[in-house]
Amino acid sequence: MAMTAQITAPSFAAKNMTRIHIERAVLTVLAAASGVAVLTTIGIVLSVLYESLLFFSEVPFWHFLFGTTWAPTGNPPSFGILPLLGGTLLITVIAIVVAGPLGLFSAIYLAEYATPKVRAVAKPLLEMLAGIPTVVLGFFAALTVAPLIRSLGTSAGLDVASESALAAGLVMGMMIVPLISSLSDDIINAVPQSLRDGSYAMGATKSETVKKVVLPAALPGIVSAFILAISRAIGETMIVVMAAGLAANLTFNPFAAVTTVTVQIATLLVGDQEFDSAKTLSAFALGLVLFCVTLALNYVALRTVRKYREQYE
């Protein structure tokens, strides 16, 4: 054979050390990059926790957690978080009452009923709504929706504040519709077709199949979608900063003005900050509460969704 010994076989023992060193360095860089996300979380926890501890050295923890008056600039100042939690809760409830049915029903319609043409129009519309910055929605809430609700309410003989919780909650609800809708749409589509077939073969109508088979099967996923939506509503800032106002009222009247945790954080930290005063530090304590609550909600929701997906894979 004339071809033999044209190529000398490389020795398996002789490693290309340069390449191995370079690749090891590349891997180290890549691993470090994935650590940045972890560092971010640690940074958030440490910075928020540190300033919060400074705050709690001045204001007792129990006063903060169970106080019913929020007046950081009062004399003497008072840092009771309950009115803020109440306001956040009120607006979140309004938002979910608006977004829940709208988001879920539009997801059901898109997943089960819509023709491809309707989907091709409706999906981009929802994505468009999802892409609108919240500062824009806040402007709309404050300058268009709030006056509208006020004049409607006044003509119905109601006493409506110019910065009513209802206006902020309504617009926040519309902001959340795409979130609930797209998450639920995915979840509903993940329900195996065989379950639907089983139901249709029994002579069930489409809505019976959706209500009695598809939705119960998708329930864990849909609940998680709602939890994520709640977490999003609690953490939303601009809509409430612009439309909900600063009055720390502990009320469940949707026509009254309330304030939220995020509004107070933003207000306390815009302008002059004094890191030695309880007023500025209280924003970090509020941030700690916000971070813990949303993290807990997100964690539960994401874990449930993950389990749900594994079930049908």
């Binding site: 928020v48 939303e236 930290l269």
Partner: peptide
């Protein structure tokens, strides 16, 4: 790390402001 990334994606944006400030 994976759980951390997924959760970080859902942290309210204002919290990142606190991080930036502090």
């Amino acid at each position: 790390i994976e759980i951390n990334i997924n959760n970080l994606a859902a942290v309210p944006s204002i919290i990142f402001g606190l991080l930036g400030l502090a």
